[in-house]
């Protein structure tokens, strides 16, 4: 499938969101195109995760518009096109009795794949997904016995299994050690460039995002969009985003 970078996958118009009186997002406008690798950055509590949750419908929309593949979110039904890896996914119950294969198979449990499935397609998709994230050899291990970097790859495989077009990740590298993080970024690049998946990733690691992502959305109640992440990092924009008083420490590895 050729990637059409002009095609709008997600359109957000004048979106606002408040937890009770607390305004988290205000008049957000953002368009995400097919094949984008969008890094969503911003200070703690800036509304990054809220934005992601609104896009996937985990939070109810209050004001504004969200269009997914051209359809208003309330009418959207093709949720199998979205893979979501939550922060909670990383903090799952380590004693949960499930093997890697059982976890990845969950990606086949949604409506769309339930009525349109054979055991063999399921099996093939699971194997393909595990091979794509380089974890096929771990298929019979318990998920709780893996390192957090490996678990992260399994969650990616689970998302791949539902044959999505977009994968959304909420702070996936928290608690993952540096060398595993690098492998993880390599994997994401492969998903974006070879498998043509659109990626939206919330992260507090601005430097990594500026390097890895092809677009940046800087969130602090509203969203500033940058189609050139490197320029964004070089300019004084981040100072504005985080306030002049804060020190931004870049750690180079």
């Amino acid at each position: 499938m050729p990637v059409n970078h002009q095609k709008n996958i997600i359109e957000i118009k004048n979106l606002s969101f408040a937890y009770r009186e607390n305004i988290v997002l205000k008049d957000v406008n953002l368009t995400i195109h097919q094949g984008d690798y969008l890094g969503v950055i911003g200070p703690n509590g800036s509304g990054k995760s809220t934005l992601l949750k609104l896009i996937v419908g985990l939070l109810p929309k209050q004001n504004g518009e969200i269009l997914l593949f051209g359809e208003p979110i309330d009418k959207f039904k093709k949720w199998h096109k979205f893979g979501y890896i939550s922060q909670r996914a990383i903090n799952f119950d380590f004693l949960f009795p499930a093997t890697v294969t059982e976890v990845v198979a969950m990606g086949r449990y949604n409506q769309a794949s339930l009525f349109n499935r054979t055991k063999q397609t399921d099996k093939n998709l699971i194997e393909q997904a595990l091979r794509n994230v380089d974890m096929w050899d771990f298929r019979d291990r318990l998920i709780g016995d893996l390192s957090s970097g490996q678990q992260q790859r399994i969650f990616i495989a689970r998302a791949l299994c539902s044959e999505p077009e977009v994968i959304l990740l909420d702070e996936p590298t928290v608690g993952v050690d540096i060398s595993a993080q690098e492998k993880f970024y390599t994997l994401l690049k492969k998903l974006n460039q070879e498998l043509n998946l659109t990626l939206i990733m919330v992260s507090h690691d601005m430097e990594a995002m500026a390097k890895e992502a092809t677009e940046l959305a800087c969130v602090n109640q509203n969203v500033t969009y940058h189609s050139d992440p490197q320029a964004c990092i070089r300019g004084d924009f981040l100072q504005k985003l985080y306030g002049n008083s804060s020190n931004i420490i870049f750690h180079r590895h």
């Binding site: 949720w79 799952f92 976890v103 198979a105 969950m106």
Partner: peptide, 19 residues
Amino acid sequence: FRQLLFISFDEEAAQVSGL
């Protein structure tokens, strides 16, 4: 069974997948 398993393991991801 499978849907209940997915929901028990990761409720948010299960919801996003359309359950």
